[in-house]
Simulated assay, not measured.
Amino acid sequence: MVAIELKIGSFKAEYAGKMNLYLSLLDRFERGENENQSIGIILCADKDHLDVEIALQDINKPIGVAEYQLLLSKEELQTLVVNEIKASTKEEG
């Protein structure tokens, strides 16, 4: 299983602790006997490599941190999301 967390802003050390908790919960309550250990991915708008290294150095679970870049402006993305929500609620109703 893979847990993915998308953050709007820069990486914070507390994100590593939260992901560690999520992976522990997945492994304890959701993982099957023959499945591998869960993997965590934290996607952030920005990261400082030293902050990430220090935050993850004593965590024994596989967690990766990566940056993302928006291809749309914030306004375009918001309009797209709102339109998708409206379309999905019309389909349900």
Rank of each mutant, 00 (worst) to 15 (best):
M1W: 04
K74N: 09
K86F: 05
F29E: 10
M1S: 13
L6F: 02
I4N: 03
K7I: 03
I39F: 09
F11G: 07
Q37M: 11
D46T: 00
L56M: 02
A16E: 04
E33Q: 13
A87F: 10
K47N: 09
E53W: 00
E14I: 02
K90D: 14
L26P: 00
L77F: 14
K74Q: 12
K12H: 06
H49S: 08
Q69R: 02
E76A: 11
F11T: 00
L26W: 03
I4L: 06
K61M: 15
L71R: 13
E5K: 03
S38K: 03
D51E: 12
I39C: 04
L21D: 09
A13T: 05
P62W: 01
L56A: 07
Q69W: 01
E53N: 07
E67L: 00
K18N: 09
L21V: 10
N34R: 14
I54E: 15
R31P: 06
L50P: 01
E91P: 00
P62V: 06
Y15S: 01
G32S: 09
D58Y: 08
G40M: 06
E91A: 04
Y68Q: 00
Q37K: 12
S88K: 14
E91D: 11
N60E: 14
L43C: 07
E67Y: 00
Q57C: 04
D46Q: 07
L70M: 11
P62A: 11
S24G: 15
I41W: 09
G93W: 02
L71Q: 12
L50E: 11
G93L: 08
E67K: 10
L56G: 03
N20D: 15
L43I: 02
G17A: 05
R31D: 02
E53Y: 02
C44H: 02
I42Q: 07
A66R: 01
A55P: 02
L26Y: 11
S24L: 09
L71N: 12
F29Q: 07
I85H: 11
K47W: 00
A13S: 15
D27F: 04
K90T: 13
I41E: 09
D46F: 08
N34Y: 14
T89D: 14
S38T: 15
E76C: 07
F11C: 03
A16N: 01
Q78V: 00
V81Q: 10
N60W: 06
A3Q: 07
D48K: 15
L26V: 04
K74V: 11
L70K: 03
E35T: 08
Y15I: 03
L43H: 03
A3K: 07
N20Y: 08
I63H: 06
I8E: 09
K12Y: 02
E5P: 01
R28K: 15
L56E: 09
I4R: 01
I8K: 11
E33S: 13
Q57E: 05
V82Q: 14
